[in-house]
C-alpha cells in the first residue's frame, strides 16, 4: 500500500484503509487527523501499517520493571496533555471507552517547566481518581505562559461498567520527559503501580 496514494488532501480527519493487517477481514480503518496524516506522508511504505496504528492511538504503554510507562505523541503540548489523560484512564480502568463525559470539572496548574507541568497534570488526574473516584473521558486543555487550564469531562467511577485495572500510586520523576521535535511533542512518564 502506498500511503501517498491514500492521503490526498488534509481535511480535519482522514480515514485510511489498510489491507493485510491480519485481523481476519483484511481491512482496518484508521482515522487520522491532519497532523497525524502529515506524519504518515513522510513515512516509508514498509512501516505504514505500524505507524498508522500508533497514530490512531496517540498514547502507548511501555515496559518498566515493576511499573508502567506512558508515552504520548501529539502535535502540541495541549494535545499531549489531553491524550495523556486518555492514556492514564486506560491504565486506571479496564474499559476506558465506556467512560462517559457526564460531568465537567475545571482544573488549573502552573509550572514553567513543560516536563514538570506534564507530571503534575497526570498526578492531578490520578489524584482525582484515587481520592474522589472521578474518571476522565476527555478534556480540553489550554496552556499559556506555564499555566494550564483544563476542562475535564468524565464521570464517577462505576466498577461494573468501567472495571478496575491498576492502582497508580504516583506519577514519578523517573525518566520523566517532554520534548518537542520536528514531528511534534513527545511526553513520557513512569507510573508507580
Amino acid at each position: 500500500m502506498a500511503i501517498e496514494d491514500t492521503l490526498g488532501s488534509l481535511p480535519e480527519f482522514v480515514d485510511v484503509v489498510v489491507d493485510g493487517d491480519g485481523d481476519g477481514d483484511g481491512r482496518t480503518l484508521y482515522r487520522l487527523d491532519a497532523w497525524a496524516a502529515r506524519r504518515a506522508r513522510r513515512t516509508p511504505t514498509g512501516a505504514a501499517r505500524l505507524l498508522l496504528r500508533s497514530l490512531a492511538m496517540p498514547y502507548e504503554l511501555f515496559e518498566h520493571t515493576a511499573d508502567l510507562g506512558l508515552r504520548v505523541r501529539a502535535p502540541s503540548l495541549e494535545r499531549l496533555c489531553a491524550e495523556g489523560a486518555r492514556g492514564l484512564t486506560s491504565v486506571l480502568v479496564v474499559a476506558p471507552e465506556a467512560v462517559l463525559g457526564r460531568e465537567t470539572r475545571c482544573l488549573a496548574l502552573a509550572n514553567d517547566d513543560a516536563a514538570e507541568l506534564w507530571r503534575e497534570w497526570l498526578a492531578e488526574l490520578a489524584f482525582l481518581f484515587a481520592a474522589r473516584g472521578f474518571v476522565v473521558a476527555s478534556c480540553s486543555v489550554a496552556i499559556r505562559a506555564g499555566r494550564l487550564d483544563a476542562e475535564v469531562c468524565g464521570e464517577s467511577f462505576d466498577e461494573r461498567r468501567h472495571g478496575r485495572a491498576h492502582e497508580v500510586k504516583a506519577v514519578t520523576y523517573h525518566a520523566l520527559r517532554v520534548v518537542e521535535d520536528a514531528e511534534g511533542w513527545l511526553g513520557e512518564a513512569i507510573l508507580d503501580i
Binding site: 515493576a66 489524584f127 484515587a130 481520592a131 491498576h166 492502582e167 500510586k169 503501580i193
Partner: peptide, 18 residues
C-alpha cells in the same frame, strides 16, 4: 490535605499491585 483525603476510608484495605 490531599494526603489526609487519600487516607480517609483506606485504613484496613489491602490495595492493589503486589
Amino acid at each position: 490535605a490531599r494526603a489526609l483525603e487519600r487516607g480517609v476510608g483506606q485504613c484496613g484495605t489491602l490495595g492493589a499491585g503486589n
